[in-house]
Write a protein that binds this DNA or RNA. Structure first.
Lengths: 165, 165
DNA sequence: AGTGTTATGTTATATTGTATCATTAGTCGT
DNA sequence: ACGACTAATGATACAATATAACATAACACT
C-alpha cells in the first residue's frame, strides 16, 4: 500500500498512542487507518471495505472493519458520524493538540462535512452545562444536522414546516 | 384510543399547525402522534409500529410509520434522534414558544435522553458560527453522544482511550 | 512448548430505512 | 353530483447498516 508522507505521520501517531495505552497497532488496523486517511471523506463501513479490498492485498470483510473502526474510535483516531452512519479519520491527531472537541456540521443532503473550530470558552461553558445535567460527554464530538451552501440552493422553498408559528 | 388531557392538547396544536400550513392531520397521523406522546420515550420506527398495533384497531406497517414520522418531523412535532435512530415527540410544542433549539443529551449506553435547556445567547452565538461556515442548521436540534449518571457508574474504568496524550 | 488473552475470519442474522407501484381518500372546478 | 387531480396510505420487495456467535490465528508471558 502506498503511503503519503502525511499518512506515515498518522501511523506514527497511532503507534505512539497504542504504545502508551497498551494496545496493538496490528497490520490490519494500520491498513484501515491508512485507507481511511487517503479517502479523507466520510465513508460507510461497507464503502471502506470496498476501498480496502481495492488497495490492500489480503481481503477483509465488513465485520472486521466494524471492529477495527470501533477500536480506532476508542483511541480517538476516527470519528463516527452517527447522523449519517459514516466514519472519518480524526484530523486533530497529527502533530496537534488532541483535546479539542470537534464540532461537525453534517450536510443532511450531500453528506459533506465541515469541522467547525468553535471557541474554547464556548465548549467549556457548554460542557459544564452537560456535566450539571449529570451527563458525561463521550465520543468527544458533536454533530449538527444542517445543509451546506450548495444543497441550500438546490432545495425548493416552502417546505411544510416553514410557516410554523 | 385513550387520550389523556395532555395528548388532546398535543393534537390540538398539531391541528392548528396543519391548518396554518395547508397540511392534513389525518386519523393515522393523529394516532401516530398520540401513541408517540403516550410512550414519551425515544422509540424506533419498528417499536412504534408494535405499540401502534397494540393500541389502535386498524393495523399499520413500518413503511407508513416512517412516512408519517417524516411528516411529523417536517412540521416539527417530532424529533428524530439520529444518533440512536429513534424518535420522540417534541415537548416544546404544547402551549410553549416553539422557536427553541433543543439540545439532546443522548446516553450512548441506555439511550435515555435529557433535553438540555441551553441559554439563548449561547445558541445564537453558535448558530452564527454555523452560518459563517456557510451551513444552514436544519432539524432545529442538536445531539450530543454522552453517558448518563447510571451508565457512567456501571462502566469499567481505563478504556483504551483514557490514557491518551 | 504451554497457557491465557487479544485479534481476526467466517457465517448468519438482526435492525434500520427506501423504492416502487397499487389503491384509497380527499380537493377542486364545473 | 361528477370527473379529474392530488395527497395519503397499503403492500411488497429490497437495500443499507450493524451485531451475534463461534472458530481460528497471532501474540504475550511464564
Amino acid at each position: 500500500m502506498m503511503s503519503t508522507v502525511a499518512a506515515k505521520d498518522m501511523v506514527k501517531v497511532a503507534r505512539n498512542i497504542c504504545d502508551k495505552t497498551g494496545n496493538r497497532l496490528t497490520e490490519t488496523r494500520q491498513h484501515v487507518l491508512e485507507v481511511l486517511f487517503e479517502l479523507d471523506t466520510p465513508v460507510s463501513a461497507y464503502e471502506l471495505t470496498e476501498h480496502y479490498n481495492l488497495l490492500i492485498d489480503s481481503p477483509i470483510k465488513t465485520m472486521s472493519i466494524y471492529r477495527i473502526l470501533d477500536f480506532l474510535e476508542s483511541i480517538r483516531l476516527v470519528h463516527r458520524l452517527r447522523s449519517i452512519n459514516k466514519y472519518i479519520v480524526c484530523h486533530h491527531s497529527v502533530g496537534a493538540c488532541h483535546h479539542k472537541t470537534p464540532f461537525f456540521l453534517v450536510c443532511k443532503s450531500c453528506h459533506c462535512i465541515k469541522d467547525l473550530e468553535i471557541a474554547t470558552e464556548f465548549v467549556t461553558a457548554f460542557l459544564q452545562q452537560v456535566e450539571e445535567a449529570g451527563f458525561l460527554s463521550v465520543g468527544s464530538q458533536m454533530e449538527l444536522s444542517s445543509l451546506c451552501k450548495n444543497c441550500q440552493q438546490s432545495l425548493e422553498p416552502n417546505s411544510p414546516g416553514d410557516i410554523h408559528d
